[in-house]
């Protein structure tokens, strides 16, 4: 990570400091976020996250963007299928329990050549405690399976590895 100004400071700078989380004195809290750098456009590897959990999506986006990846988030399987064609991603990270078309079905359609590139690097994601989901995912030729709860550093390493190994990786 390049040298950057400290994120937090006390006391808060002026409210017009330009931070995306310009707390200032608003609400009584005293910390303030620094301005965000604009990401370069846009030959970055692309990651599609398909997950109906907004918190997971936001935290993964934050991590991946700092890894130099372009991120698109969709909330269901139908939108995931559409984004596989329109985005199109270098790596897809798909929740197995999506509404409508679940992650397994998205994976099956990708590998069958119905949507996106059949050789797309695709990782599934699911909650811990049900190994059968992991076994099923790999049986359908998933490239990886991310188990929640997860360590951001580990997920980041796994996704960057898939991005490096993607066909035509940029």
């Amino acid at each position: 990570m390049s040298a950057r100004p400290p994120l937090l400071s006390r006391p808060a700078p002026a409210p017009d400091a330009g931070g995306t989380a310009s707390g200032g004195r608003a609400g009584g809290d005293v910390w303030v976020a620094r301005p965000r750098p604009t990401p370069p456009a846009d030959d970055r590897p692309r990651v599609l996250i398909a997950d109906d959990d907004g918190v997971t999506g936001r935290v993964l986006r934050h991590r991946f963007e700092r890894d130099g990846l372009a991120v698109e988030i969709v909330a269901d399987g139908i939108d995931a299928l559409a984004s596989l064609a329109a985005f199109p991603p270098t790596v897809a990270l798909i929740n197995v329990a999506l509404a409508g078309v679940d992650g397994f079905e998205v994976l099956r359609r990708v590998r069958a050549g119905d949507v996106g590139a059949p050789a797309l690097r695709l990782a599934l994601m699911g909650w811990a405690g049900n190994d059968a989901l992991i076994v099923r995912g790999f049986a359908l030729d998933a490239d990886d399976f991310i188990v929640r709860p997860f360590s951001l550093a580990e997920v980041s390493a796994r996704i960057r590895r898939l991005a490096r190994r993607a066909p035509h990786a940029r």
Partner: peptide
């Protein structure tokens, strides 16, 4: 207001 800062804490920034 809080979430962006919290996210930066999580990614080590």
């Amino acid at each position: 207001r809080w979430e962006p800062v919290l996210l930066d804490v999580l990614v080590g920034e």
